[in-house]
Design a protein around this nucleic acid. Sequence first.
DNA 1: ATGAAAGCGCTAACAA
DNA 2: TTGTTAGCGCTTTCAT
Lengths: 341, 341
Amino acid sequence: MTRTKKSPSKNKSIDDVARLAGVSITTVSRVINKVGAVKEKNRAKVMDAVKELKFEPSIFAQRLATGKSNVVALLIPRYEGVFYSFYALELIRATGTLCEAFKLDLLLHLTDSRPKSGLNLRGVGGVIFSDIIGTRYQVEEALKMGLPCVVINNYVDDLPVSCVAIDNLGGAKSAVNYLVSLGHKRIAHISGDVTTQAAEKRLEGYLEALKENRIALNEGYILKTDYSRGQARQASEKLFRMPEPPTAVFVASDSMALEVMAVARELGKNIPADLSIVGFDDNPSGLYGPVALTTIRQPLLKMAEEGVKELNRLMNAKKGTAVKKITLPTELVVRESCRTL
Amino acid sequence: MTRTKKSPSKNKSIDDVARLAGVSITTVSRVINKVGAVKEKNRAKVMDAVKELKFEPSIFAQRLATGKSNVVALLIPRYEGVFYSFYALELIRATGTLCEAFKLDLLLHLTDSRPKSGLNLRGVGGVIFSDIIGTRYQVEEALKMGLPCVVINNYVDDLPVSCVAIDNLGGAKSAVNYLVSLGHKRIAHISGDVTTQAAEKRLEGYLEALKENRIALNEGYILKTDYSRGQARQASEKLFRMPEPPTAVFVASDSMALEVMAVARELGKNIPADLSIVGFDDNPSGLYGPVALTTIRQPLLKMAEEGVKELNRLMNAKKGTAVKKITLPTELVVRESCRTL
DNA sequence: ATGAAAGCGCTAACAA
DNA sequence: TTGTTAGCGCTTTCAT
């Protein structure tokens, strides 16, 4: 006896279908996988049987048999700062949506990025690293396991891994250039967590743009934060109290920019009369409030899309396929928070 | 020949370990699953072999063999309003953390809750429904499949399913009672999306508390929204323009309450001098800004914890185990946004 | 175009 | 305490 009869309550399996359709399980397999040739008549019979039995193939059996997994793990740092950002949320949403479209299962892994967390990737077919803050070794580990990997929101040029990042440098420059074009010279920068590549590049862009515009750098105009609203608040207060306060500020994230606006209002300042502000993200929250925030739009959704697409490609390609490094452009969105000097 | 020799590059399997350790695969299985009795000497040999080969059992083979899956699907509506809330984010984080602790794999499913989306649950061992807005049928479906289910953030009493919800009614009442105790009589309510059970119950609590305090209901004082900041803004503006404006308002979410504060400031009003505000959530954002928000704390983390725990119980119990209905208490957190009248 | 049969890697009776 | 063996449900040669 090769097959045991199952009790009727059990889940339907491929040979229940085969029996009902009067064909072999091989034929059923061909039909559900759309491979090989099956006579139209038989295909129909199988389809009917599948429908009648409400048959769903066991993914475990499939994966065991094929040795392939279509589970994608999305690794996100559990850190407060990062996790609660507009960025993380948008990313989860976009990735979730895209994975569904690609018929991939999305496994969510919140990582502690503690020194040597074993990073359990059993059964995972591919990994998306959302940024890599202190988790480089995890990428290396996954790569060593021969797992298809894509790093998102971080341009990695010293590792053989596909990545899709945002042109933070260019975005920051266009923000500052815009301010300069409006006549501003005293431009401050409230930066994010500079251990983050995004914040680092935005700061770098700010610096470069100043230099290119021959504006002397005022070290005091650079306020570093951890991206939190709390620190943004402190930075803003510092800003407004300066003996020679800036006329404009480029803020590394919209949520921080909104905090700057709030502080300004509390201090009786007027935006943009007293201070011009450019944010970064194009967070929809920037639209509320009395004055809409001018910002740099970053294509988060596009980034997730490219990431999932690339991972999908890698997962279906044979090992050793060339990796891709993608940088997505940003876009200045002019609204109401800046004025001509 | 029962087993094929594999090429050395292939992943190690249980009989590579068995061979190296000089025991049968059964013994290896016993060791890695910590079941049955194995002589200490053999156990050691197996462990060594496992380590040397870096062996990791195939979860697909395990699941196929045992018929069990430890994959938990978390279903979250993709809706903007719900998805971008503090609630959803906190929930994802908490669930992710808890699942990791329980060694469960967390599959993220963003649902459209479109009429009949097939809800692909193949290979899933249990489901957590985060709220059920127009997705009751999905719960019923999953239940029908005999899948362990837990509904979170929604008290479901007409379905044989475990659920863990928050005492929204009680929370709302304590908010209003607090306001009344401060001497307020003209109390408005900015409600959330009332198709949501949470918003519905908060509104109900508001109504009940008024009645219990013998305060006549002013229909105009109830402003319904979809939880978005945009609608909160509109509602606030309406509020401030009333011929007889309220002296206090109970807002169904902290993020909306913050919007009320922002609008107040823009209109030159002072909080709490001109208006007392109580929110709901205990969203950390409520701590920023010049006046800290008084609010109702809801134990989101606890809710996720109870949810995962319960699901885990269900997944390890035999079918037909009694379900549990849990309601978690809320807590009034007095800060600075209310004043005595 | 179709089917028989050999695995995929593991667990769990059942024997020994 | 240990090993033998029959599956779990599916894919995939290889014949037919």
